[in-house]
Design a protein around this nucleic acid. Structure first.
Length: 423
RNA sequence: GGAGGGGUCGCAUAGUGGCCGAGUGCGGGCGCCUGCUAAGCGCUUACUGGUUGUUAAGAUCAGUCGAGGGUUCGAAUCCCUCCCCCUCCGCCA
């Protein structure tokens, strides 16, 4: 979230960015509440100060009558404090709620536009392959090579579930290993993370309250299934002060992700493009504000490296103001080409969230031993989402008979160079 | 699931209603002393919010002893609820 001080001092910018995001936020209400809060706070604190000094005097006093008078007097003061405090608490609760509805400010270079149609293609890399035959979508190829079993996934769990078996299951595992190894070799520290987090954690990472509809949760206990590893990474250092000399910290993890996809009902229902459960390799960076832009570029370069090494045609998009996520100040997407479906598939989002998440999660760091604390910048990037990378490999490397060539970098992991059509 | 023990400043500990404006040790910072990788001495040491101040240094007030409520003129201390950690037993991969 933004600090109320920041909003107070930059009203015009905050309001403009909210408009550019094509959304709304109760800025005027926040300013009003802030003013009320400070006024009330002063009153309460003055009364408390009075009570503190008088109470101390009561303790020191030997005159019983004198004490009685003052105790009675302070009883009234106490009642007044309770009254004001109740009002103050109500205001603070609403202020906090309203503040958590305000999205991050936008990077000034973000292209303006109301929705995804205004996203800007920054760069397209690799040749879009031409096939001597009509390329098949991955679900057809999955059927030919065997191992992509959508019907049995649906039987077990309903729509948007599937099973992978045999070489296709191994292909996913190989891709995960390959990605983790690539990022770890570049100095990203590999993590194993909880897949279920408590409610406080989801508030801290701004999934709640706004995106409750997209989350699965345990009915009996305080557990939410992570929609992305980002949630866990943000909470890794929640309520902590990171000591000097630790930043930047760069992490990578493979986790499953769980999403209800209520907003996408009826979209992308074929194949494995959009499931309720999918695997993702995620990178995450904690850094000093001054390092933010360099880390962003670093993450983008790392994310691009994967389709590059896999030999998949891809493009880099800069998201426009209307399409950027709530917490991010700017975001670049990476999309790979899926010739069977004939569309670009988002496989990564690279975002700089500035100190927005850190403030909300109360994460601070100490630049040096005698310096006061600051909020670090938090950045995240998929590296990459597995099902769509699978689609990319399957559809780009398909042959006319439905078999799939294995990209060279994956062959050591797969122990084969081709997934043959089933007999 | 059962029984017991515990959560105090970066760490370790003291603290059973006012002398706690949270002590002490270690660690950290600054300085001093000392010809020598040592030791010693002095000062200092968190966070949040408000007011004031030039967007400064600072000053000042309030709050924070796991969290939230309660009792009281006054709570680290008493009461209630919850959370987390540890030990043993049971169950289990």
């Amino acid at each position: 979230m933004l600090s109320v001080q920041y909003i107070r001092e930059n009203v015009d910018r905050v309001k403009r960015d909210v408009l550019l995001r094509n959304t709304t936020a109760p800025i005027d209400r926040i300013l009003l509440l802030d003013e009320d809060r400070r006024e009330l706070l002063q009153q309460v604190e003055q009364l408390r100060a009075k009570r503190n000094t008088v109470s101390k005097a009561i303790g020191a006093s030997k005159d019983a009558a004198e004490r009685e008078v003052r105790i009675t007097e302070m009883r009234l003061v106490g009642d007044e404090i309770d009254r004001l405090d109740a009002r103050l608490k109500k205001i603070e609760t609403e202020l906090h709620d309203k503040l958590s509805e305000v999205p991050n400010i936008l990077d000034p270079n973000v292209p303006k536009g109301p929705d995804e149609t205004s996203n800007v293609v920054v760069e397209t890399v690799g040749e879009i392959p031409h096939f001597a035959f009509t390329p098949r979508p991955h679900w057809d190829i999955g059927e030919i090579v065997g191992g992509l079993d959508i019907a049995r996934g649906a039987k077990m769990s309903g729509s948007r579930f599937y099973t992978l078996r045999g070489p296709l299951a191994k292909l996913q595992r190989s891709l995960i290993q390959f990605m983790l190894n690539e990022h770890a070799a570049a100095g990203f520290s590999e993590c194993y993370l909880p897949y279920m987090l408590n409610e406080v954690s989801l508030y801290a990472s701004a999934q709640l309250p706004k995106f409750r509809d997209n989350l699965y949760r345990d009915a009996e206990e305080d557990f939410y299934f992570i929609p992305t590893a980002e949630v866990a990474f943000v909470n890794l250092y929640r309520d902590e002060i990171i000591p000097p000399g630790k930043l930047p910290m760069r992490f990578v993890a493979h986790t499953p992700c769980f999403r209800r996809e209520k907003m996408s009902a009826g979209r992308d229902v074929r194949g494995i493009k959009r499931g309720h459960q999918f695997e993702k390799v995620e990178m995450f960076v904690y850094c000093e504000p001054e390092q933010g832009e360099a880390e962003f570029q670093g993450l983008l370069a790392r994310a691009r490296l994967i389709p590059e090494l896999l030999g998949l045609p891809y493009r880099v998009l800069q998201l426009c103001s209307g399409d950027i996520g709530f917490s991010a100040t700017k975001t670049c997407d990476i999309e790979i080409w899926a010739p069977g479906q004939g569309e670009w598939l988002e496989v990564s989002s690279v975002s700089n969230c500035l100190d927005f998440q850190a403030r909300r999660a109360s994460i601070r760091y100490r630049p040096s031993a005698d310096a006061s604390t600051r909020h670090p910048y938090l950045l995240n990037a998929s590296g990459l989402a597995l099902p769509r990378t699978m689609i990319g490999v399957i559809e780009n490397y398909q042959r006319e008979d439905g078999s799939i060539d294995i990209p060279e970098v994956l062959q050591p992991y797969m122990g084969m160079s081709r997934i043959a059509a089933a007999g």
